[in-house]
């Protein structure tokens, strides 16, 4: 989905203004079409994210990247919020950090994240976030849904028990690979990612077998078969490059 203000406009026709503002007491400057998240990261300030991935369109859905802005009552997702002149942004207030923890805990209760037996153990973004945020126990009851594992594909498998519904797989498949094999069925707590007409991945007529979805998946939900835990490190540095080269953000299927 295109995020406003538009990127990729010709700078001679639409000069973008340079703004100065504060992030965590630090004075920074950036163009008005750079998200607060990206400006913060350029300045070495870390903000946790899950649905965001450099090289894919933004969804603003996981809400982990929320920040406080002085004078604004609502918390704003920094991945889809753009700076204004003299804005004062606080990225790690007590309030924000406690909400981030709770959201992450909710994600842990939603599916069955049994790290000890997961192929991504040690390389999982969800696990890393938990460490980063200092989560030692989950205060809400686990929902223990009974979900399937689909190993019908010759090279990959999908384990819905580990999926956090970040939809990176859906976006990469549509925006970068151009196959749109993945999408999300149902709604609310019963949502689930699917291939084609909710058929076994192995029987998909549209999957090119490129494996990009596996590389972008933050958890062990999508994995390559026959790889040991140590080998399950995901490679995705090619994404921003492909996004730029394919330049097809303008005509992709919005999420």
């Amino acid at each position: 989905m295109k995020i406003h203000p538009r990127k990729n406009v010709r700078s001679d026709l639409n000069p973008s203004r340079l703004l100065t503002f504060r992030i965590d007491e630090r004075v920074v400057s950036a163009h008005e079409d750079e998200s607060i998240l990206s400006v913060a990261r350029q300045n070495g300030i870390s903000i946790p994210t899950l649905c965001h991935l450099d090289g894919l369109s933004e969804r603003g859905a996981c809400r982990l990247c929320i920040v406080e802005v002085k004078g604004v009552a609502r918390l704003l997702p920094s991945c889809v919020t753009f700076p204004r002149q003299d804005m004062e942004i606080i990225t790690a207030s007590e309030r924000v950090v406690s909400y981030r923890k709770k959201i992450l805990e909710l994600l842990f209760t939603e599916r069955n994240h049994v790290c000890a037996v997961c192929v991504s153990n040690g390389h999982c973004e969800l696990q890393n976030l938990a460490v980063e945020l200092g989560i030692s126990h989950v205060r809400y009851p686990y929902l223990y849904p009974r979900l399937a594992v689909d190993a019908s594909h010759s090279r990959f498998s999908v384990d819905h028990n580990r999926c956090v519904l970040c939809l990176r797989c859906v976006r990469v498949c549509d925006e970068i690979e151009g196959a749109h094999t993945w999408d999300i069925m149902g709604r609310g707590i019963t949502s689930r990612v699917i291939t084609d007409l909710n058929q076994p991945w192995g029987s998909s007529e549209t999957c090119t077998g490129c494996g990009k979805c596996v590389q972008v998946c933050p958890t062990g939900a999508l994995s390559e078969k026959g790889k040991s835990v140590a080998e399950m490190i995901k490679r995705r540095q090619f994404l921003p490059y492909l996004q730029m080269m394919r330049g097809r953000q303008d005509e992709s299927w919005p999420k």
């Binding site: 549509d174 094999t181 999408d183 699917i194 084609d196 007409l197 909710n198 549209t206 299927w253």
Partner: peptide
């Protein structure tokens, strides 16, 4: 429309 999108809309 991609197959998966049709299914997604049909079940949403």
């Amino acid at each position: 429309v991609p197959l998966s999108r049709v299914y997604a809309v049909a079940t949403f």
